[in-house]
Computed example of a mutant assay.
Amino acid sequence: MVLSERRARILALIIDDYVDSAQPVGSQALVQRHNLPLSSATVRNEMQALEIEGFITHPHTSAGRIPSNRGYRYYVGSLMREKPLSAEERARILHQFHQAARRIEEWTSLAATVLARALGNTALVTEPRLREVFFKNMQLVELGERRALLVVVTADAAVHQRVIEFDESVDQESLTLLANRLNVELRGRRWHEIPAPQVRPGDQLSVEAAVLAELTDLLRSLEREGLDDIVVEGVREMLRQPEFEDSDRVLDTLAAVEGRELRRALPVESLAPESVAVVIGDENREGPYQEMSFVLARYGVEGGVAGIVGVLGPTRMAYADTVAHVRYIRDVLTQLIRTFYGGD
């Protein structure tokens, strides 16, 4: 849906004011604060339309309006104007990295600290790893009438094993034929490039479908293992924001930034090369993340050593400033990694 120019401007002003004040925004205040050439009644009508369309919502305790997840999404996708960091701030950040020890651990820790201090939200940085895991070949070894050992070799020559339970009987000859065929069809693929088995609810899983499902899960888990070491900074700063005045939400948020939960919640599938991903509210997995937003980017060498840098905070976030900071820190880390590993 595309908003009219006037309605889009009003939405942008509501979001900007709400991000700055954390208070619901009323029509009269909007007119006065921004010297709008519109009556408060006209602005009120536009706000009612925005509410009907799902871009803003009406808290029970206030006559003002606040942005919804849909409103934030429209703002980020269509209205946000990202402002690059000033030359002074870029120089200051770069100086800090040049002063740090020439170690990966120092760089990731410094990156998280810089983002947390600049933005007042939780910053996270994973240590760089070979992030893409490619299938090379497999063997299937019969263990029993309905069990087999899946032995997978990945492109880095690492060997991984899983035991598969089947819904039907198997024999070694058929397992070998299946493995040989899949080796030809799937060689060089990543987990998301393996065809998903077509199974209707209640149907038994064929032998091939079971092997494909296990192989996909194995390769996907290997790629996520690169997220084991996450540097997290700025939790205390984030919890000072008014969204976290409720003690129950504080406890939920503390659990959300705990390493294991955070690894599971990171929306890594949203990350594309050279871009900064913004994942808002209900676009995240269930739990406290539904009231929070991620701003994330990959840094490092494409197809080689890489990590994730980003920010987690409430949906009431200064998205333009956050995206600009994450983008710049991503670029700094990428250049350092290329120098460190001798990449081009």
Rank of each mutant, 00 (worst) to 15 (best):
R187V: 12
E185A: 11
N180V: 05
L182E: 14
E193P: 02
E185M: 11
V211Y: 00
I194P: 02
Q198H: 10
R200I: 09
V184K: 15
Q198A: 15
R190I: 13
L212E: 07
V211R: 00
Q204V: 03
G202I: 06
L186G: 06
Q198V: 13
G188T: 06
R190F: 04
R187K: 15
N183S: 05
E185R: 07
L205F: 04
E185P: 09
P201R: 03
P201W: 01
W191Q: 13
A213H: 03
N180F: 08
P197D: 04
S206K: 04
L186E: 09
H192W: 14
R200D: 12
E193K: 09
V199T: 15
Q204P: 01
R181W: 08
Q204K: 11
N180G: 13
H192Q: 15
P197A: 09
R190W: 10
H192A: 13
L205M: 11
D203T: 06
R187D: 14
D203C: 08
V184H: 14
R190L: 11
E193T: 03
R189V: 11
I194W: 04
G188A: 11
R181V: 03
N183P: 08
A210G: 07
P201Y: 01
Q198C: 08
W191I: 04
G202T: 11
I194Y: 04
A210D: 00
N180W: 02
E193L: 10
N183R: 01
V199H: 04
L205E: 06
L212I: 12
P195E: 08
I194E: 07
Q204A: 02
R189W: 10
G188L: 08
P201E: 09
V211Q: 03
Q204T: 05
L205W: 02
A209G: 08
A209S: 04
L182M: 14
I194G: 04
W191M: 11
P197Q: 05
G188K: 11
R181E: 07
E208Y: 00
A209T: 05
E185K: 12
G202A: 07
D203I: 05
G202W: 12
V211G: 00
I194L: 14
R190S: 09
R187F: 12
P197F: 00
N180I: 00
